[in-house]
């Protein structure tokens, strides 16, 4: 823990039921991404396909701390956060397959959608560009006394973009209810972290803004959960933002086209031993929280729901071409939820 400590304590460890939920969502996240990769290889997903393999404890464990009224601004490795916040597999699949009924009506792909009904606002490609927007939502929440917290993410590389720093400056001074999680996964595309920063921990950046900063083991969902719960509480109580660094490994290439030959093999092997899902599974099995039959039940549920989502999305057509011209300007105020 660096800088100022969060003042409030919070429930710091997940219950047994929570742990099972966390496990389920982490498994679901990984399986979903495997089907994305399969669809990509089949030429059904156009452009790029990104996964968060290795990041499941972070994306799932963090979003798990949010309430319904809280806002989520996920990044490109955070499929798990979308799922935890309630996004359906069908909607996510429609997005990836750029279909007519997707949340962006085919105008954008992957997690680049907004779903106000769930208070999820996706990223754009420009790294860190959503952090100021998340700050703006935090500002609105504060001005309207909503007590809603905003959670968002950034990569180790992306944390060098000016928007990251400008947002922390604003949120710290205005004590805005923001939780900013740096997903330090050792690489930014091909660039190792040694070329991105020379501080020991990225959470040390918090010191410069006078806000709490904490580094957690991003392969341990319990640690992620504890830190995020505290940060969310801190924000909800009006104490301002927290910076969390979650340390893990990007186990896949930057995107599906990237073989990541630049990643040393032994590094991958080291991190494979710390796989967040295997780690949680071991813990849950040892503690007799997860039985073999429960595990099987989860696996079957995931497989059925995924198959449904894939088939559903594949059957949905692409948008009609002329639709491209529609929707640049709004006709009226307000959104339909």
């Amino acid at each position: 823990m660096n800088g100022q400590r969060p003042r409030r304590g919070a429930k710091q460890s997940p219950s047994k039921g929570d742990l099972l939920q966390l496990y389920y969502y982490m498994r679901l996240t990984r399986e979903f991404e495997e089907s994305i990769l399969k669809l990509y290889r089949q030429g059904k997903i156009l452009g790029g396909a990104y996964t968060g393999n290795g990041n499941e404890a972070t994306s799932v464990g963090s979003a798990f701390c949010l309430k319904k009224e809280d806002y989520l601004f996920p990044m490109h490795r955070d499929l798990g956060a979308h799922l935890v916040k309630g996004q359906s597999l069908r909607n996510l699949m429609l997005q990836h397959l750029a279909r007519a009924n997707s949340l962006t009506r085919g105008r954008d792909g992957t997690g680049h959608y907004a779903d106000p009904s769930l208070r999820i606002y996706g990223n754009i490609s420009h790294l860190a560009a959503m952090i100021p927007v998340a700050a703006g939502v935090a500002l609105a929440s504060k001005l309207r006394k909503e007590k809603a917290v905003v959670m968002t993410y950034i990569g180790d590389g992306g944390s060098n973009v000016g928007d990251f720093h400008e947002s922390l400056a604003m949120c710290s001074v205005m004590r805005l209810p923001l939780v900013l999680i740096i997903e330090n996964n050792q690489f930014a595309y091909s660039t190792p972290i040694a070329k991105q920063f020379i501080v020991k921990r990225l959470s040390d950046r918090a010191i410069g803004y006078g806000i709490p900063g904490i580094t957690v083991d991003g392969t341990d969902v319990n640690e992620v959960y504890a830190a995020c719960m505290r940060a969310v509480d801190h924000a909800r109580e009006g104490e301002g933002p927290t910076l969390i660094e979650s340390v893990t490994m990007r186990m896949h290439g930057h995107s599906a086209h990237d073989g990541a030959e630049y990643v040393p093999k032994n590094l991958l092997e080291e991190w494979k031993k710390k796989d967040p899902i295997a780690r949680l599974e071991k813990h849950l099995t040892e503690k007799k929280i997860l039985s073999a039959s429960k595990k099987l039940e989860f696996e079957q549920k995931i497989s059925v729901e995924l198959e449904d989502a894939v088939q559903y999305a594949l059957q949905n057509p692409y948008p009609a071409a002329e639709e491209a011209a529609v929707g640049v300007f709004a006709e009226q105020l307000g959104i339909k939820i």
Partner: peptide, 16 residues
């Protein structure tokens, strides 16, 4: 290109 952002879906992008 028509005066919109670049759409992702192939049908839309072709029209664009």
């Amino acid at each position: 290109a028509i005066d919109t952002p670049t759409p992702y879906s192939p049908t839309l992008e072709e029209f664009f």
